[in-house]
Computed example of a mutant assay.
Amino acid sequence: MRKVGEKIAESTNLDTVTSAKECLDVIELSYKHLPDYLKPCLLYFASFQEDEKISFTNLAWLWTIEGFIPNTVVAESLLNDLIGRSLIMVSKKRSIGGVRTCHIHDVLHDFCVTKAKEEKFMQLASNGKTDFSSSFYENRRLCIDRSLYWAERIGNLQVRQFIPEIKRSDPSEVLRNQRLYGINAIMDIEPFKPRVSLTNKQADYMIKMANRLRKLKCQCKEPLKLRLDALQLETLSVNDVLLPQSVMSNIGRLPNLVVLKLEHRAFQQEKWDIEDEEFLTLKVLKLRSLKITTWNASDESLPNLEQLLVENCFHLQEIPSVVGEILTLKMIEVKRCGESLENSVRQIQEEQEGYGNEVLKVLIYPLDSST
C-alpha cells in the first residue's frame, strides 16, 4: 500500500500528467486506496472555497462534530496522512510545529465536489444554482455558500453546524432566523468559533447566545463594553477595542484562556498592570502595535506562560523582569521594538543563562530588520 501511495503522490504532481482524464484517473485511484476513515475527511474539503486557506483548528472541530473522528486530538495525524499522500497541501506552519492552515488543489477540490454529490455525502448550494428536486433532500449534508437565501427555501432544515460570515450580516438577524432549527443548540457547542468584527450591540447579543464560545476575535467600531469574564474562552484576539484596566483584569481571570492576542489600540491607558493570580492558564501572549509605555506583572501572574511575542511596540520600555522567572517559559520573540525593550529582554536572557536555564529561547529582530 505504501508503494501505491508513493506512486499516487508522484502522479498528482500536475506537471507530469499529460491529460485531464489521466489526472482524474490518478485522483480516483488515490481516493479508492484511501482507508474508509479518511474518505469523509477528504470529501469534506468540498465545503470550502477553492484556494481557501483552511484553519487546522477549525477543520479539526468540524471533523469532530460531523463524527468523522472521536475527538480533535487525532485530527492532526489524519491531516498529516492526507498531506503525505499529496492530497492536501500545507499553507502555513505553526511557530511551534504542526500545520496552522492548509489548502486543496483546485483540481482535487473539483473532484471532491463531484464525488461528494455522487455519494450523496454533501449538497453544495449557491444562489440560483440548485435544483430543489427530491434528490436534493437525500443528501446527508448541505453546504450553503455565504448567503441565508436558502434558509427561506429549504423548510425545516435541522442544522448541526452553522458558521455564517457575520462580517456580511447582522448577527442578530442570523440568530433570529427561525428556519434554522437548532441554531441555539449550535451556539452552545464548542465548535462554533466565529471570527467577527462587532459593535457592542452585536457582540452583546452574540455572547448572550454563545456562552460556551471557545474562540473570539474582536475588532470593535467603538470601545468594548462587555462582560467577557462570563465566557469559557480559550483563545481571544482583540484589536482596536480600547480596553480599560478593569476589563483587562476580568479577562485575566478567564479560567480557560490559553492564547491572548492584543493588537493596535487594545488599551485605553498607556500602562498595563497584571495583578496576582491573573492569566493563570495563559500559554501564549502576543502584543502587537500597542501604544502602552509601561507593563508591570506580579510574581504570581502568568505562571504557565510558554511563549511571549512582542511586535512593533515602539513605546513599550521593557518586559517585566519577573517574566524571565516563569518556569514554563520557552520563548521570547521581539520584532521591531525600541532599543530599551530589546535591552530588557537581553538582560532577562543573561540572568536566565546565569541560572543555568538552557530552555529559554530569545529571538530579537531590530527595527531595521526585514523579518
Score class of each variant (00 low, 15 high):
P35I: 04
W63Y: 11
T57N: 12
H109I: 01
S19A: 09
I96T: 14
L24Y: 06
L79D: 01
V107K: 01
C41F: 04
E52R: 04
Y31M: 04
S77T: 14
F111K: 01
V107D: 03
H105Q: 11
S95E: 15
N71K: 11
N58Y: 11
C23M: 05
I8G: 02
K117W: 09
K115S: 03
C112V: 07
S30R: 02
K32S: 10
K32Q: 09
Y37C: 12
V73E: 13
D81K: 11
Y44Q: 09
E66F: 09
E22V: 05
S55E: 10
K53W: 04
L79C: 11
I104M: 13
V107M: 04
D51F: 07
E50C: 02
T64G: 03
C112E: 04
K117L: 14
L34A: 06
R100G: 11
D81V: 04
I69N: 08
R100P: 00
D25G: 12
T57I: 12
T114Q: 10
K32P: 00
T16E: 14
D106R: 06
L42Y: 08
I27V: 12
E22H: 03
D25W: 02
D110L: 04
T72C: 13
Y31V: 02
K32Y: 13
L79R: 04
L79T: 07
R94I: 10
L29G: 07
V74M: 06
E119M: 12
I65T: 14
A20S: 06
C102S: 12
I104R: 00
T57Q: 11
N80E: 15
S95I: 13
P40T: 07
K117P: 00
D36H: 07
L87K: 02
E118F: 05
V17H: 01
V17S: 13
I8W: 03
S86F: 04
T18A: 08
H109N: 05
T64E: 15
D81L: 07
H103E: 10
L42Q: 02
S86I: 01
V113C: 13
